[in-house]
Write a protein that binds this DNA or RNA. Structure first.
Lengths: 341, 341
DNA sequence: AAAGTAGCCGAAAAGGTTTTCTGCGACCGT
DNA sequence: ACGGTCGCAGAAAACCTTTTCGGCTACTTT
């Protein structure tokens, strides 16, 4: 490979040095390196040669100061360990990286004061825009309309309808899940989900109930709210099997819950998927692939959400702002827990 | 780009504006706001007042350009979805954020070319330092010695001993795990681990064997290498129980493997921990807490690793570089799978 | 041959801040 | 009253790059 790295990298080399070595002015050097059409080919070659020899790399700070555009954005998250933030962040980083925009990462840990502080710090570094990633689907307070740069809210929408928010369509996801179960012939479907204070659990349940109604079916029992854990899934499934032994499918509010449900089913001697179909939400690979059989799940497509947020931010920076809430659809990933392998 | 209509908050306010409003020169304004002792108290108050009134926020770009220090660092990772990168990244972000250093996040996705590109971009933005986070414990190629800023390697050490690397002590972790099992009275211990091409599996096994020898014990059977999955854990445990029914503990190379092992034990009618103790590595909460009983595991303390890496980078930036490999110890987190609840 | 033109290059300003250096007035000691 | 010191404020340079504008040379046109 080309690893001819001169030791000059240790000392900072400026355009001035390049110009001097090439025997031209800084102005000409700049134009030569930036492809401006006001420099003779021979001169340009000399400058490029000099720049390479010195391994010159333009100081983006000076450039940004002048251009009033830094090519940086702030990514403001509220839980870095979160299931949801990370893939969104990946998608955004991906989209930005492809356009060689650098991403400032800040974790506010759900603290409003820390968040304000970070926003201030990012603005003083003159980011071109901000993406605010929530950790729950519930609406969050707006950063305000008076910011000097565009903002896009991802996952958790802003309370202010004049902001632009990109979210996942949890209602639609619930509908798709039921549609899938029905399409495999299930008619006695129960629903065990997680923490009722989460918008996600409510919305998914809402979508599921709507889809059932659309198929002329009713949920078996009530929606079982609890927590987003395996142990809740086990406990709820055991209760449910006692009360409604006739059920032939359990839709679970998350993959973790689904894992617990599958454990309980096995202990009760119910085969999956032959006796009972099971599916979850989130399509968290470590849970879906470890299950026996592999777990059908609804993929919320977080990476795409991050990418879309990045694209919308680009558009806003380029002067094409939008507002409102944009919901992205989820997709069912079918595995052995709903259709026999 | 023409945003004439909305608020005037988009209008950028500079030190010049503050100075004019306060009736002083920019030089005095700067000194007043930065606490320089060459300003009369009354004058300083006037300037501060003016700055507040205009909600002035100094342009960090201009400041950095002059100070030759940006207060930014680059965090270079290779897998954002990774189990290991994220907590490390959290720890580093935490440490930096506390000192109001901004973090540029870049994901090279394991691609050397992309990595070079990102390093170049970060340097052109004049970061003060770099942290390179690996996704495996195996050594990686150095970024080179000719970089103009200090670099700290985290998790995956650099091949160059003159670089500074912060890693976890997997050998010690293996030792600690066995020590714990022995301390609970186990003497017939087996070891099921993951992918043999990972340094982590080899080192943990090495530490475990050393500790066994130290206790005058021998491993039951051979070290079982496979993959980092639940299904491998299930399969390996079934085989193992057939060949060595006398075993009273299984040390697993990861929590995922341990989950599979526990499933198999249950199906073979072996009680955990009364008949067989089980423990894992990584202390991945979603796996340890979902297990029945909760899984004892070795916590690698990734967040601390990230924080230490950040601190070392600070020190290096401040002119106190180190080199070599610094290994941080792990700690056993005891739960119900090794000691009766 | 004079005038115009095209091509190429350099000087200088701009961007916002910090710092050094100079200057100016007031106060002190004798 | 005078030289000296001290405290405070402003002018200007510096950081590095881009861009505008003016000027020079050489060439084309009439």
């Amino acid at each position: 490979m080309n690893n001819a790295v001169p030791s000059s990298a240790s000392r900072k080399v400026t355009l001035n040095d390049v110009a001097r070595l090439a025997g031209v002015s800084v102005a000409t050097a700049s134009k030569a390196l930036n492809g401006r059409k006001q420099v003779r080919a021979e001169t340009r070659a000399r400058v490029v040669e000099a720049a390479e020899q010195l391994s010159f790399s333009p100081n983006e700070l000076a450039r940004s100061l002048l251009a009033d555009r830094t090519g940086t954005v702030g990514l403001l998250t509220n839980d870095l360990e979160g299931r949801f933030s990370i893939p969104i962040l990946m998608g955004a980083e991906d989209a930005f990286g492809a356009d060689s925009v650098a991403v400032f990462l800040c974790d506010a840990r759900g603290d409003a004061i820390r968040e304000k502080h970070h926003v201030q710090a990012l603005l003083s570094r003159r980011v071109d825009g901000l993406i605010v990633v929530g950790s729950r689907t519930d609406p969050r307070s707006s950063l305000g309309r008076e910011l000097p740069v565009p903002v896009v809210y991802a996952y958790a929408p802003s309370e202010d309808p004049d902001d632009l928010s990109i979210v996942v369509d949890n209602v639609g996801a619930g509908r798709s899940a039921v549609d899938h179960l029905v399409s495999t012939g299930r008619t006695r479907i129960a629903h065990i989900t997680g923490d009722p204070t989460y918008g996600a659990s409510q919305e998914r349940a809402e979508g599921a109930l709507a889809a059932l109604a659309g198929h002329g079916l009713e949920l078996v029992g009530e929606v079982r709210f609890g927590s987003w854990t395996e142990s809740w899934g086990r406990a709820a499934a055991s209760m449910l099997l006692g009360q409604h032994p006739e059920l032939d499918a359990i839709l679970c509010g998350s993959d973790q819950v689904a894992r617990g449900v599958m454990d309980a089913l096995r202990e009760h001697g119910r085969a999956v998927p032959d006796d009972v179909a099971v599916m979850g939400f989130d399509n968290w690979e470590i849970f879906t692939s470890g299950a026996r059989p592999a777990l059908t799940s609804v993929d919320m497509n977080f990476e795409r959400l991050g990418r879309v947020a990045a694209q919308r931010l680009f558009a806003a920076i380029d002067g094409e702002p939008r507002s409102g809430v944009e919901a992205l659809d989820a997709r069912v990933v079918i595995r052995g827990s709903t259709v026999p392998g």
